[in-house]
C-alpha cells in the first residue's frame, strides 16, 4: 500500500512572529523551521500502518522554497521511504487551492491509496488543504481523526474523529484522505540510524511543468498582516473585602460584560 503524507514546514512554536516591512508577510529572519506538529502525527500514523502491514511505501510531499528540504529530510529520518519537493517560483504565492491542486496532481501521478495530512498547519491555521485535496481527487475525507484501522485487503478504512464529547466513526472506501488530530499517536524521535540513512534517500524535485499544467492564479490574496494589540494590564481592586467584591462584580458586569 502506498501512503502519501503531505507536510508543511512552519516556524517553530516558540517563534516570536514579527510582521515584515511589506506588511503582508512575516519576517523570517532567524526563524527555526519545523515540520508542522499535526503533520508529524500524519507521518507517524503512515509509518505505523506500513509497519503493521509489513509492507508498503510512505512518501512525504511538501510544497515550498528550498528550505523545505530540511523538513522533508526530517520525515525521511523518521522513516519515510522517499520524498517529493514541489519547488517552483510559480508557486511562491500559492493559496490553499493552488497548493491542493499541485498536491492532487502528485497524488494522481503516484497513484497513492491513502493520503494523510495534519488537521491544519500551525502557521496560518487555515486547515483547508485536506478538504480541497479530497474534493479535487473526488475521494472521501475524514478530518480530526483520533483512530484509524485499515481492513486486511486495503479496500476501506474505519476512522474515528473527535467530536464534542466523543468519537464519530466512519467507514471510508479507499482511496481516501485523512487529517490527523493530536492524540492519534505519539510521533517517534528519529533514530541516529534514521538520521544517517536519510541522506541516502531520494528527495525528488518537481516543477509546475512536471505536473502538466500552468499554475492558476491564487484566488486568495493577503491584504495585510497586523500584530495583535498588546494585552491591557490587569487591574488590582483595592480596599476592604466587602467594597472590593462589590466593585469586582460591578466591573465584571459593566466594564467586562462577563456576567
Amino acid at each position: 500500500m502506498k501512503i502519501l503524507v503531505t507536510i508543511k514546514q512552519v516556524p517553530d512554536t516558540a517563534t516570536q512572529v514579527k510582521v515584515a516591512a511589506d506588511g503582508k508577510t512575516i519576517d523570517t529572519t532567524g526563524i527555526t523551521w519545523i515540520v508542522s506538529p499535526y503533520d508529524e502525527f500524519a507521518v507517524e500514523e503512515a509509518l505505523r500502518i506500513k509497519e503493521k502491514r509489513g509492507q508498503g511505501e510512505v512518501v512525504a510531499v511538501s510544497l515550498g522554497p528550498d528550505r523545505v528540504k530540511e523538513a522533508l529530510r526530517s520525515c525521511l529520518a523518521m522513516g519515510c521511504d522517499r520524498a517529493i519537493h514541489l519547488n517552483d517560483p510559480a508557486w511562491a504565492a500559492a493559496d490553499t487551492l493552488a497548493t491542493a491542486r499541485a498536491l492532487a496532481a502528485v497524488i494522481k501521478q503516484e497513484s497513492a491509496q491513502l493520503v494523510l495530512c495534519g488537521r491544519q498547519a500551525i502557521d496560518d491555521d487555515m486547515g483547508a488543504v485536506t478538504a480541497q485535496l479530497a474534493e479535487l481527487l473526488g475521494w472521501p475525507c475524514a478530518y480530526w481523526i483520533m483512530e484509524e484501522t485499515i481492513d486486511a485487503d486495503a479496500k476501506s478504512v474505519r476512522a474515528a474523529r473527535q467530536v464534542e464529547g466523543g468519537l464519530e466513526v466512519f467507514d471510508l472506501p479507499l482511496p481516501a484522505v485523512l487529517a490527523a488530530q493530536k492524540g492519534l499517536n505519539e510521533p517517534r524521535y528519529p533514530t541516529l540510524k534514521g538520521i544517517m540513512g536519510a541522506k541516502k534517500k531520494e528527495i525528488k524535485d518537481l516543477k509546475a511543468s512536471d505536473l502538466g499544467g500552468a499554475v492558476e492564479p491564487s484566488q486568495l490574496s493577503v491584504v495585510g498582516l497586523q500584530a495583535l494589540p498588546p494585552r491591557p494590564p490587569g487591574r488590582i481592586i483595592q480596599g476592604d473585602v466587602p467594597t472590593a467584591v462589590k466593585e469586582l462584580v460591578r466591573s465584571l458586569r459593566e466594564d467586562a460584560k462577563a456576567i
Partner: peptide, 26 residues
C-alpha cells in the same frame, strides 16, 4: 534504541555510524 549508545560505531557492529561531533552535540 535511539542509537545514542554507539554513535561513532559503524553500523556493521551495531552502532549508528555517525561521528565524534555528533557524539559531542548529543
Amino acid at each position: 534504541e535511539l542509537g545514542l549508545m554507539g554513535i561513532a560505531v559503524r553500523e556493521q557492529w551495531g552502532g549508528s555510524g555517525a561521528d565524534a561531533v555528533s557524539y559531542v552535540v548529543a
